[in-house]
Design a protein around this nucleic acid. Structure first.
Length: 749
DNA sequence: AAAAACTATTTTTTT
DNA sequence: AATAGTTTTT
């Protein structure tokens, strides 16, 4: 590929250009948020190709399919090419799957193996634990699943898992062995296997590793801070210390520790690769000054980091806005109003706006409000569509078509529609199959023959087998094959009946139609489309990867999903201690959890280009009851001068509606709750924090007028600090009472 | 064996 | 509050 086209390097700064032009040997590119690392990587790939590197000598690894696709498109754009056969730009997991399809037999699988997700994995494990006569709570199964997952992430075998406390009496060697036996029988790999097995194979078979070493002369890894030990081990088999390994990462954006990512990989890189050059990109091209300094201010509170300070040549821009609502609905309503205001008055479009949150469920109130406000939005959820029961049922059939040994799919499909094969029959069939060392479906014909199952179960099972056989002989297009199977097996009929029953019509049938259409369009887009290929897509490609983010709609997503993206306007909602930072993460050992939450916050803040707006709710329903959370500790860490204004709290609603309006309150639908600009010494972040309902009595002073939702207006008499600060208040109507401070807001009236 | 009633659990984040 | 999983009833 020695196209005459010289690569345009003028658009890069000196450091970026240096990294692009770096010659041979390892290089660690420490690239801060918004510092143009993707530009560097894509330019580098383009440069290598232009200078004559063979496309199949280049391997670029990313974490998400979205990143891979973007990278590929940008490389193609730089080269003016529309395809480069042999060039591999892929996620770790896709590459692992591809590798394993080629070497499947070496690890007891066929080329058609199925990828098991967490739920499938749990199902197998439930079975394995039952076989070992372990008392199995759902919780214990999940704990073991996590343990096995973690072991694999760390490059260990399932047999070497650390037993979780819920099932500590079990021997991991036994659990692991049984689990792996069932996985092999089902011709399945779990996510961990997609990394672990290639690493193991290449470690054992040196000649093979040698082949890949020779092929991939140029290896680039994006988001290196998110690699786990298994990925790193795999990488090292074909990219040894003297190779041209080019890794890009930012220790401050390591947010996948819970998935086994080890920041150590990036911190230790210079030791593992002693010849490595280290290049830092610290100029940020994305965010205005105030936003950048807010992010810097927060992340500076972490101890375990390489340490860098991003800077920008852009202006300061607008300061950060804070808002506190009484509850999640108030917060949601305000956010919707604010978005409408920004679009109406300041020229932003809904597509410029992202609302980020710590967890998926936080979007619920906002979705409702946005709908009512007539604002288009798109929730970028992990994989909502494929999670629906009816879609999973249908997919179970597809899975059986591809891999008849997929026991998890078999157990699911046989029950939809119900055909007389229940728990007992399944248990007998399972035992029979286990004795013959076969999967359930493989053993089924013999089981019918031997009358292992009888009566209605027997005919039901026979019908099921017949439907599958008939589909197997159907040589039409994959989508037609699936449709035929679903019809013959009675799935469609069942769904139609269900839809009628639930009158409101959730459209379960329609969802399955959508699935069939998805298979069809996959067929049309993919040259040699197979159902196996489609299933791999379903497992490895999430909606996040496909989401059209600039479709003119407001984007709602988790911070994790927002990684790598940028938006002119960013809202971060739910900034409360316990929510963001997440309560569970906080009780992680040695503050590692808090630091990861802080990095997550850093990622959230650095998504914003021009406007950053942070909100929280004073109370929020969680698990069905109302919780009063303190403001997020990260708010307190914002530098004092980047915040727009003293924030003005909204009066809590009364039972009857909204209280009379007092001077200085925002009008009910006034989107900007902003008081006169503060003088410098008046505004220190602690004051803002206090007003957010902070640590020891939220900025309340004796004598202050306050509002309580049930008890009305009153005057503070005494402040009682502590874990859950309370106030003694003289209420106008009901006299002196002691109430939790979090129920109370300052009030001028 | 299937449907209905009840219960426990969940909200961390995803390849 | 919603759901997945478990137990009881038919």
């Amino acid at each position: 590929m020695s196209a005459g086209a010289a690569l345009e390097l003028d658009s890069l700064n000196a450091i970026q250009r240096d990294a692009v032009l770096h010659d041979e040997g390892p290089l660690l590119l420490l690239a801060g948020a918004g510092s143009g690392k993707t530009r560097v990587v894509t330019h580098r790939i383009a440069r290598l190709l232009i200078e004559g590197a063979a496309p199949d000598s280049v391997l670029a690894l990313t974490f998400t399919n979205r990143a891979a696709r973007e990278m590929r498109e940008r490389v193609f754009a730089l080269l003016g090419a529309d395809d480069l056969p042999g060039l591999t730009i892929s996620t770790f997991h896709s590459l692992g799957a591809r590798f394993l399809r080629q070497h499947a037999t070496a690890v007891g699988r066929t080329r058609a193996f199925t990828i098991y997700d967490d739920d499938d994995q749990s199902a197998v494990l439930r079975e394995a634990l039952a076989d070992l006569n372990a008392g199995l709570t759902a919780k214990g199964v999940r704990a073991w699943r996590r343990a096995i997952d973690q072991a694999k992430n760390a490059g260990l075998d399932a047999r070497e898992a650390t037993p979780p406390s819920e099932g500590a009496f079990l021997d991991p060697a036994e659990v692991g062995a049984r689990y792996e036996l069932l996985m092999e029988r089902a011709d399945a790999f779990d996510f961990g296997d997609l990394i672990l097995r290639p690493a193991q194979i290449l470690t054992e078979v040196q000649s093979l590793a040698e082949r890949y070493r020779e092929r991939w002369r140029w290896v680039l890894v994006d988001e290196f801070q998110d690699t786990n030990r298994a990925q790193y081990a795999w990488l090292r088999t074909f990219a040894p210390p003297d190779s041209n390994l080019f890794v890009v990462g930012d220790d401050d954006q390591s947010i996948y520790g819970w998935r086994g990512a080890e920041v150590e990989n990036i911190l230790q890189f210079p030791h593992e690769y002693p010849r490595a050059r280290v290049v830092r990109l610290e100029q940020n091209y994305r965010s205005d000054g105030h936003i950048l300094r807010a992010a810097n201010g927060v992340i500076a509170h972490n101890d375990r980091r390489l340490g860098k300070d991003l800077w920008t040549e852009r202006g300061e821009g607008t300061r950060i806005e804070l808002y506190e609502g009484h509850d999640a609905r108030a917060e949601a309503r305000w956010v919707a109003e604010r978005i409408a205001g920004l679009c109406r008055d300041e020229g932003y479009a809904p597509g410029d706006v992202a609302v980020l949150m710590r967890a998926n469920h936080l979007s619920l109130d906002l979705e409702e409000t946005l709908t009512r406000a007539g604002l288009r939005y798109a929730v970028v959820r992990g994989r909502s569509f494929y999670d629906r029961a009816e879609v999973r049922d249908a997919i179970a059939y597809v899975r059986l078509l591809v891999n008849p040994n997929d026991d998890v799919a078999f157990r699911r499909a046989i029950g939809v529609p119900t055909r007389g094969v229940g728990k007992t029959s399944l248990a007998r069939l399972a035992e029979f199959a286990d004795g013959r060392d076969q999967s359930a479906l493989a053993a089924a014909p013999a089981a019918i023959e031997a009358a292992v199952v009888r009566g209605r179960a027997r005919t039901g099972l026979a019908e099921f087998l017949a439907a599958l056989d008939a589909a197997g002989e159907d040589d039409g297009r994959p989508s037609a094959q699936v449709r035929g199977l679903l019809e013959r097996a009675g799935v469609m009929e069942q769904l139609a009946n269900e839809d009628v029953e639930r009158e409101a019509g959730e459209g379960r049938q329609a969802n399955v139609e959508r699935l069939l259409q998805a298979i069809e369009s996959y067929e049309q887009e993919t040259p040699d489309a197979t159902l196996a290929g489609y299933l791999e897509q379903v497992k490895l490609v999430s909606e996040v990867d496909v989401a059209q983010l600039s479709g003119g709609a407001v984007s709602l997503m988790t911070v994790h999903a927002a990684k790598g993206l940028e938006f002119p306007v960013v809202f971060v909602i739910g900034l409360e201690d316990g929510v963001f930072p997440n309560a569970r993460a906080l009780d992680d050992l040695e503050g590692a959890g808090e630091e990861e939450e802080r990095r997550l916050c850093y990622v959230a803040l650095t998504r914003a280009e021009r406007r950053l707006i942070l909100t929280r709710a004073r109370q929020r329903r969680t698990f069905g009851d109302v919780r009063h959370n303190a403001p997020s500790r990260f708010l307190r860490e914002l530098p004092r001068d980047v915040v727009e204004s003293r924030y003005v709290p909204e009066p809590p609603p009364t039972q009857r509606g909204w209280p009379r309006r007092a001077a200085g309150w925002p009008r009910e639908h006034d989107p900007v709750a902003v008081a006169p600009a503060p003088s410098d010494d008046e505004l220190c972040m602690d004051a803002v924090y206090d007003e957010f309902g902070g640590a020891d009595g939220p900025g309340f002073r004796p004598g202050m007028r306050v509002w309580h939702a049930q008890l009305g207006a009153g005057r503070v008499r005494k402040i009682n600090p502590g874990m859950r600060p309370s106030l003694t208040i003289d209420f106008d109507d009901v006299g002196q009472r002691k109430v939790l401070a979090s129920f109370v807001a300052p009030y001028e009236g």
